[in-house]
Simulated scan of single mutants.
Amino acid sequence: MTHTTSSLITPDSGQWIQQIQAWASELGFSKIGVAGVDLSSAEPNLLHWLSLGYHGDMHYMELHGLKRARPAELVPGTISVITARMPYLPRSTAPDWQDRERARLDQPAEGVVSLYARGRDYHKVVRSRLRKLCDRIETLVGPFGHRVFSDSAPVLEKELASRSGQGWRGKHSMVLSREAGSMFFLGEIFVDFALEPTDPVSAHCGTCTACIDVCPTGAIVAPGVVDARRCISYLTIENHGPIPEELRPLMGNHIFGCDDCQTFCPWNKYAQTTELPDFDERSPLVGRQLVDLFAWDEETFLKRAEGGPIRRINHERWLRNIAVALGNALLQADEAQAHELRTALLGRANHESPLVREHVAWALAQRLP
């Protein structure tokens, strides 16, 4: 990043932020905020969380040391951080979407993919639109140094978002907003000029513990603290190896990610839908039977996951995740359905991958013929 401007807050800061918000809205962002670069008060919690091993195998969380909490070290020259919020509920989302998503959990033979993963890969969408926003900002302030991020670098996104008024940190650790719930992506622009920080908002979880109570694996170990090693999103996406056996029965029919803490959160009745077709649901991923998804060969998987977040896992881990869900479904199936599920599993019993074979064997053992 180049140094082009002073660290003194410009007298036009308020007007600039209003203009940036207007442009951001045109690009699909629902809210813009500004945070400073001093996150030193967040460092002790970050270090403590890492020391407890709650990041699991996400070694990148510790690779950059405290740069994660020090924007001006991560990107030298950074003076302010513009934060952005982009809703991702599909345009066709019904008002009772929470009820519908909760109902999927009662259909054990249906594979459930996290809502955010049913459309295009958000990393690409958010970053490309942040770059377009930067182009417009340049017409306002002149050439400036900047870098854009969206879950793509060692950035304390939720800390920056909460400090800049995007919402408060909910007990599930995500950012919650009174007018938008938590169904949105976060993005940041590190800039080398000074803007007046926007005010944070107060927390409104009160005594509610819905997210903690509903977490299938008990991953929310304290309000605002998640042990990723127990989180279904981590287990199905970030985890490259076997899923711990003691957690498999608790995963139900989740095959990529988990939204339970969000679909049961009362504030998400205010969740906003996106205006972008990028996040429309892709039909092969929604409401599909586990046996159909398990039948995908690698070519089919790559084709149907093209351009989406599910590409983050390979075909091997896709089969691993579905095998666990099939094992859980076996326990609740009638005899005819159990035969279908068992047949599907047997078709992968001799898979070339030891990882897949192990999870298929476990699934078959959940209910012997």
Rank of each mutant, 00 (worst) to 15 (best):
E352C: 09
T78P: 03
V360T: 03
P87W: 03
A72S: 11
H123A: 07
Y270T: 12
R311P: 01
A24H: 12
R282Q: 12
N328V: 07
V75M: 06
W97N: 06
G218N: 09
Y116M: 08
N328K: 04
E179L: 11
A305V: 08
N45Q: 10
E352A: 15
P154Y: 12
L105F: 02
D334F: 13
M174I: 12
P95E: 14
R118H: 01
D260F: 11
N253D: 12
I212K: 01
G53A: 12
K67R: 14
T300F: 06
R118G: 02
L176D: 01
S182I: 14
I237Q: 07
Q15R: 09
S162P: 00
F185W: 13
E157A: 01
R127K: 15
P216Q: 14
F301K: 01
L345M: 00
L235W: 13
L355K: 08
R118L: 14
H123T: 11
E101H: 12
R357L: 13
M174D: 10
I32P: 03
P244E: 05
V201F: 10
T93W: 14
F149S: 02
W49N: 04
T93L: 08
S92Q: 12
D259C: 11
A24V: 09
A42T: 04
R129T: 02
V360Q: 04
L140H: 05
G28K: 10
R317Y: 02
I232K: 03
Y270P: 00
G287P: 05
P266Y: 07
R100S: 09
I17S: 03
G224D: 13
T207K: 14
N253A: 04
